[in-house]
Amino acid sequence: MEIDIFTWLVVVLILSGIIGYFVVWGVTPALHTPLMAVTNAISGIVVVAAMAVAGPSILSIDVCAMLPCPYPQYVVPMQWAARVIGVVAVALCAVNIFGGFAITARMLAMYKPKEEKKA
């Protein structure tokens, strides 16, 4: 029996949602702002998809001999446009990742217990 990849992805979605549900309820309300900041940082995971868009090499027009290119004259510019868009997306995600983790670290550094103050 062949299971479609889409089905597997739905399984991943459901199980991750359940994990997330229990983990997030375990977060102390005092840390809800850092939670938002760190989830913000990890939502920069879209960078993986952005890299997949920016990354592939640009194929020449010859490829249209094998593939059903609808607009052969634009095949190279369209790939370039995709690359530029991909790079912009990578940059946006990177702002999130670096900025998000930095702001989380900055916030968490401020949470101090009483004891630590003597040190």
Binding site: M78, Q79, A81, A82, R83, V88, V95
Partner: peptide, 27 residues
Amino acid sequence: VAVFHSLVGLAAALVALGMYLQKQAFG
């Protein structure tokens, strides 16, 4: 935090646009 959310949103939309261009180039 709100600004950071907007960036992820835009990035996701750009990924969709970029993929569309890539796939559409080759049909």
